[in-house]
């Protein structure tokens, strides 16, 4: 009975996450998200806007998840880590969908002020579906499982795209360097 009462009491305690911790979570991932959105729209302001829009969209759509992250029940600390991972995947996923839409809207009218497009011409000559997979794997270091969740593709599809794209990039590079 004593144990039961104590358990009920602990379950009832809810710990509020500090505002600074919550903010630092978004700050931590926003720079990576910016790099990801830059592969769709190679323009600084546009890429920043895609990230901000994605954060806003996810926070509006996933209210329950955000609430759970702000107020964690004392028995659910293990859940918090899982929820962080889930939120991260949702943010990447939103950047991917918004980035694609923005890229289509701009339809190549973005000027190459930073020189990234000319510097990474092989990469930017790839299609969007190949760019996103190779970026997430070889630059962001995501697992195949996470990439399939982010892009809504099967793991086999992701692996097939990855193999083809790696080949293309290696061949393009060796062709230029002559090895």
């Amino acid at each position: 009975m004593k144990g039961y009462c104590l358990n009920r009491l602990i379950k009832g305690i809810i710990i509020t996450v500090k505002e600074s911790d919550f903010v630092s979570f978004f700050k931590k991932y926003s720079l990576d998200l910016f790099s990801f959105s830059y592969i769709y729209v190679p323009d600084q302001l546009q890429a920043e806007q895609v990230v901000v829009d994605s954060i806003l969209a996810v926070s509006l759509k996933e209210k329950e998840l955000i609430d759970k992250l702000v107020k964690i029940p004392s028995t659910g600390f293990n859940d918090a880590k899982r929820l962080n991972g889930k939120l991260q995947i949702l943010l990447y996923s939103k950047v991917a969908s918004l980035g694609k839409t923005r890229s289509q809207q701009l339809n190549g009218s973005v000027s190459d002020q930073s020189g990234m497009k000319s510097k990474y011409s092989d990469f930017y000559s790839l299609g969007l579906d190949r760019r996103e997979v190779i970026f997430l794997k070889d630059s962001a270091g995501k697992s195949i499982e996470d990439i399939s969740k982010i892009l809504g593709k099967s793991e086999y599809e992701v692996m097939a795209i990855l193999a083809g794209t790696r080949d293309t990039l290696v061949n393009a590079s060796s062709h230029l360097q002559g090895f």
């Binding site: 978004f26 926003s30 901000v52 954060i55 955000i66 702000v70 107020k71």
Partner: peptide, 17 residues
């Protein structure tokens, strides 16, 4: 950019709270 993100996340936090 980080300042913009932190302002936005503060708003999300306040709203959730």
């Amino acid at each position: 950019f980080l300042e913009e993100v932190s302002l936005l996340s503060k708003q999300i936090y306040d709203k959730s709270k």
